[in-house]
């Protein structure tokens, strides 16, 4: 039901440009959620977005907001620069797992550690979507990708990295939650989480991030339905849903 409703009415914060995402890709659903939250909080006129390099590189155009595209992985640094220049604006980054958890780990860790008052929407789809399905740091053990053709092996490639848990250990992180958008109920939960993350920023409480487990049917080689099931059955085991840090008690 919720998905239908989201599809039916276009949030004002989305532009008229049609999404270029593959069928069954969750990037589009998360875009709509973020745009709805921005609409509901009435902050569109003061929000600036930083898009990543990844499939959502085009997000700067899909949102009807001021926006830029950072170099691969550097969005949190770019967002930091913006926030320091214009502290009363709302600044958010939108990043994939290759972008945030691989090439951009230094930037996200230090943005969170500084308690940088920005919000990050983190799309974890366990692969590099844009470049054709290579292994990401979030790729599950045993998962086959174009650069782990024999399945991800912990000895050679290490373990799937849990960014939300890791960033939650930093004192600057005010709110971090992991969600998914496979069902209408999950969509509602994700929307509440995203809203809270932006409220954290509006209150000046520090760094906030929502990690959304997402599908990449194209590079997983699955149908949209199969990929939703694979996400629920496999990804949630390595990446449990939940709130990992919440320093907002009584403040929001």
């Amino acid at each position: 039901m919720a998905i239908d409703k989201i599809v039916a009415q276009m949030p004002k914060s989305l532009s008229k440009i049609e999404f270029s995402y593959c069928p069954g890709c969750h990037h589009g659903i998360v875009h709509r959620i973020v745009a709805e939250v921005i609409d509901e909080l009435g902050i569109a006129s003061k929000t600036i977005m930083v898009a990543p390099v990844g499939c959502s590189v085009f997000a700067y155009n899909f949102f009807d907001l001021d926006g830029t595209v950072a170099a691969h992985g550097r969005a949190p640094a770019v967002a930091t620069g913006m926030k320091r220049a214009l502290p009363d604006r709302v600044i958010f980054t939108y990043q994939g797992d290759g972008d945030l958890a691989s090439i951009g780990t230094a930037e996200i860790v230090h943005a969170a550690n500084r308690g940088e008052n920005i919000t990050t929407i983190f799309i974890n789809n366990a692969v590099y979507g844009m470049t054709g399905g290579q292994m990401a740091p979030t790729t599950l053990l045993g998962q086959k990708t174009t650069t782990s053709p024999y399945g991800r092996d912990a000895k050679a490639n290490g373990y799937p990295i849990r960014m939300s848990e890791m960033l939650a250990t930093l004192d600057g992180s005010a709110y971090i939650e992991r969600t998914m958008v496979t069902t209408p109920q999950n969509v509602i939960k994700t929307k509440a989480a995203v809203k809270k993350a932006f409220q954290v920023q509006l209150k000046g409480l520090g760094f906030s991030m929502i990690e959304v487990l997402s599908t990449c049917p194209t590079n997983w080689g699955m149908t949209p339905i199969e990929s939703m099931k694979w996400l629920e059955d496999n990804m949630t085991k390595t990446f449990p849903l939940g709130v990992f840090v919440d320093r907002t008690k009584g403040l929001i």
């Binding site: 992985g73 290759g98 691989s102 090439i103 780990t105 590099y128 844009m130 470049t131 054709g132 290579q134 292994m135 740091p137 174009t146 650069t147 782990s148 053709p149 024999y150 050679a156 490639n157």
Partner: peptide
């Protein structure tokens, strides 16, 4: 580290290096 238009080279090495007892490693960044 993957990047278009050369990711096939990286992917080829991922597949081929183990066959020749070589080392392939995807780094976290360039």
């Amino acid at each position: 580290y993957p990047i278009t238009p050369q990711s096939e080279l990286t992917e080829y090495m991922a597949k081929r290096m183990p066959e020749v007892k070589g080392t392939f490693l995807q780094s976290e960044s360039e």
